[in-house]
Amino acid sequence: MRSGPWILLKLVVGVIYVFILGPILITAAVAFNESNRSYFPPRGFSLKWWGEAFAPQWVQPLMFSLELAALTAVVATAIGVPLAFAFQRYEFPGKTLVRTITLGPLILPTLVTGIALLQFLTVIGLGRWLGYWALLIGHVIICLPFSVRTIAISLQAMPGSVENAAAGLGAGPLAVLRYVTFPIIVPGIFAGMAFAFIHSFTDINMSLFIAKPGQRPVTVAIMSFLDFGFAPTLAALSILSLAIPLVLVALLGRFVGIGNFLYQEQGRG
């Protein structure tokens, strides 16, 4: 049954996987160069660039990114849960508008949202917010769609009759929420939190405009260092910053099937 065309397809798919994974593997390999040039294949073998990546110059923005992403994920979830409930469970005037605005950052260029925030905060005299607070606000805006959608999906996936069944068995609205609704959507809440974290952690287009020296995520730090050329340190750093979301997804996989939620993930790069 699996005939000629299928074998050809397998070959093509193999080549595409090389295309997908090659550059990431090459980046990892480059970090082992002996000299400070990004040779591939690497010349010599050294771990010194990995050590270099742990210099304060890089640890500071890395920690800043972690803190920002964690806080963003918590705030986006705190705002996302009530929004998802409102969208999924209620009809109210203006629902379509609020929903469009909430999901808007997914569709509109993040870059434009970033410069709009930069311009607006400056003009209304809140320029001192640039850096930490502006980043938190901006990241919550662009990560909110991820938490809202993921939570909404888990609310939607829950058969409505389960809540009715609980009510029929004598559970009041709060008991239904506590014993039935909430436990069932917890994986969705965690997944939404993880997506918000990853999206914040990997963002560059928003942070580029509203960060400031000393208060900038690792992506912005790498970007501004690039003006001085590519060093294997950056390769090591890139791989380190890839490892963090990977670990997170592995943990997430223990809660829910990652595939289910990755399917829904359609953000921007």
């Binding site: 058969p159 009759s161 069944a165 609980a166 029929g168 068995l169 008991a175 069932i184």
Partner: peptide, 18 residues
């Protein structure tokens, strides 16, 4: 409200708490 009616209901999709 339903939770004060004291009825036993079996749903088409059973609605078991997963």
């Amino acid at each position: 409200p339903p939770f004060k009616r004291d009825l036993g209901m079996v749903f088409q999709d059973y609605a078991l708490f997963p």
